[in-house]
Amino acid sequence: QKLAAATNSNYVVIDNKTAYKDATTYNNYYEFGTDKSEPAQSAGSLKTRPWSVSIEGEINKPMKLDLDSLMKIAPLEERIYRLRCVEGWSMVIPWIGFSLSNLIKKVEPNSNAKYIEFTTLADKSQMPGLREGVLDWPYVEGLRMDEAMHPLALLTFGMYGEVLPNQNGAPVRMVLPWKYGFKSPKSIVKIRFTNKQPKTAWNTTAPREYGFYSNVNPEVDHPRWSQASERRIGEDGFFTKKRKTLMFNGYSEVASLYSGMDLKKYY
């Protein structure tokens, strides 16, 4: 299903786009299985309409928005972002959505709103992977308020000129290109504003391996592998070396969010 959006030329990278087939068949979406080929095979059972997102917590205007109203908050734009997975591979994907800040302004956070917490769908009847106790479901992710307000943080409804395929997080997900991929929650059903740092899924499960911030950082290794380089899917392979990973995945405009923070400690 087509989704029209004009390209925002401020957010275009010179890298080659990843093939649509690779971006839609090589996915980490554990609610549909831990194997990367599983989401594409089993996410057909996800019902993305009707869909609504509940927005609550430390805000003046709590609301429950259906998908169509949510998509009308701001004009949709296409942005081509690099995506770096914590596992050491990367892609380049044309997403469609708008800055999350548009939604945040609309619901008017109060002075207690320090963090934003995303809860994603966890429905056993639609998601076969929930039977496995890999994580504590539902999958929860979170950001500090200033991170969430950053224009790069994209509330996303589509990719490659179409609505999101189910395995890529339909019907609405976040895309945070300066953070490892798992920080971008898929199939969001609830957005809550809080004054405490949210207990996020991977951070709770394996705190030594996955920090709350999880910014892309070539200098801070994962305990079990190096983060200094990455394999670009479809490009780096048999006869090309892996490429160097860039600080904040190349999105240096977010650096000021973390000035003064020890990024080895707040990994």
């Binding site: 087939k21 690779d22 971006a23 068949t25 090589y26 990367k36 080929s37 591979w89 394999r231 899917i233 479809g234 392979g237 048999f238």
Partner: peptide, 8 residues
């Protein structure tokens, strides 16, 4: 036929 990340 090795998928998106043949080396993995």
């Amino acid at each position: 036929h090795l998928g998106a990340n043949p080396l993995e």
